[in-house]
Design a protein around this nucleic acid. Sequence first.
DNA 1: CGCATAGTTCGTCCTTTATCGAAGCATCGA
DNA 2: TCGATGCTTCGATAAAGGACGAACTATGCG
Lengths: 224, 224
Amino acid sequence: MREGPDIARIASLVGDPARANMLTALMGGTALTASELALEAGVSLPTASSHLSKLMEGGLLTLASQGRHRYYGLAGPQVAGMIEAITGVAAAVGPQRVRPGPRDAAMRVARVCYDHLAGEQAVAMLDRLVARQVLLRDDKEIRLGPSAASHFAAIGIDVASKARRPVCRACLDWSVRRSHLAGTLGAAILDKILLEKWARREKDSRAVIFSPMGRQAFERMFLG
Amino acid sequence: MREGPDIARIASLVGDPARANMLTALMGGTALTASELALEAGVSLPTASSHLSKLMEGGLLTLASQGRHRYYGLAGPQVAGMIEAITGVAAAVGPQRVRPGPRDAAMRVARVCYDHLAGEQAVAMLDRLVARQVLLRDDKEIRLGPSAASHFAAIGIDVASKARRPVCRACLDWSVRRSHLAGTLGAAILDKILLEKWARREKDSRAVIFSPMGRQAFERMFLG
DNA sequence: CGCATAGTTCGTCCTTTATCGAAGCATCGA
DNA sequence: TCGATGCTTCGATAAAGGACGAACTATGCG
């Protein structure tokens, strides 16, 4: 009964625990089926289906049907950004969660944030790239340094801006409370990490686990 | 029953229409009393009071008691950023609101976004400052240009970074879908506009109305 | 064609919570 | 000290919406 966009409608979609768990799961970047999301949210299939249709109707999800599988994914970076913003507030406002647990510890070290790497590793990487002046940062803004093109070309990443999306963007890390690298460059680096099998995705989690070899390679490449 | 920060808890706080209206009202940047917020949200005083204590408990608001008045305000820029992010998704997802109305038209032109200016005017200003190289922008990142210090000093704004907050930050405008200027510089410019009485705040709204004289002065200063 | 798997729809139960009137505190002004 | 105003707490009511089992639809496989 007031102005502007219907913010309560969107927020209440995220405000249900089952739906919040689904959205959080989808922050991993890969689309999931209804059954997987039901498991993830800890509800029955019918319940999950009902939630999913609400999220669809609200425009927060996209649906890709492949045979008898229906893959649900986040509707876009804007939605992902909103989830991260809410996560940030939730983390800042109340460490009233007890039991950090081993799952959370791994998440703090390295995890996927929609399409790029987040966590302590990612924050350290950005710090190092800035210290070496591959990237330049003024406060929270990041841009490419003079040596960036050749530096990333050497490891097979083309830094020439192609998409409408910014090449590098700062993304506030909810666990460390400092920025890590997002944007197409952040996404490309995560691709590289997984392609080279330096790390693997933990099943049913956003956590990213580096192998000992992979960690060395990553550190040589980005933290050296 | 899963990982990380309790995002559903925060989102459900914003997910109630009455509370959403209150938070939207507080995006104006000024703290308001419980009665004002009750009016704003269209609910009775007891109902508003109940909502406010929930928002307080959730850590989204701060409270300043002055005599028998109790002023509620947003807990900080992080909360404001979250609200803007949700607003952005809501605006992108569904222009299913009919009746844009005169209120909304004014809002699109110029409005307050927590502590800085947003809307078409603000977007135009940022564009112009970038074109004149007072500010430099790479994609979505903004930093000061060489002439920035002297340029802003001339109109009484000290650009030397003092607070922990970044001097300039990009903030995505939900109506125009492009960035405007936030950060301490954005806040200082809004202060200037109101101090010089180039514009006034519309009562009970985030809209900012420029006077004819004020508009000229503003354009001379920032769009010239 | 028939069975198995993936998913949605329907009907019903039940918890959650938003709402307001009335009464209770607290602070100000005289 | 005594109203008056601003706000909160209490108690009762009503409505919204989340949960699941059972039945239904659709796709794939043999």
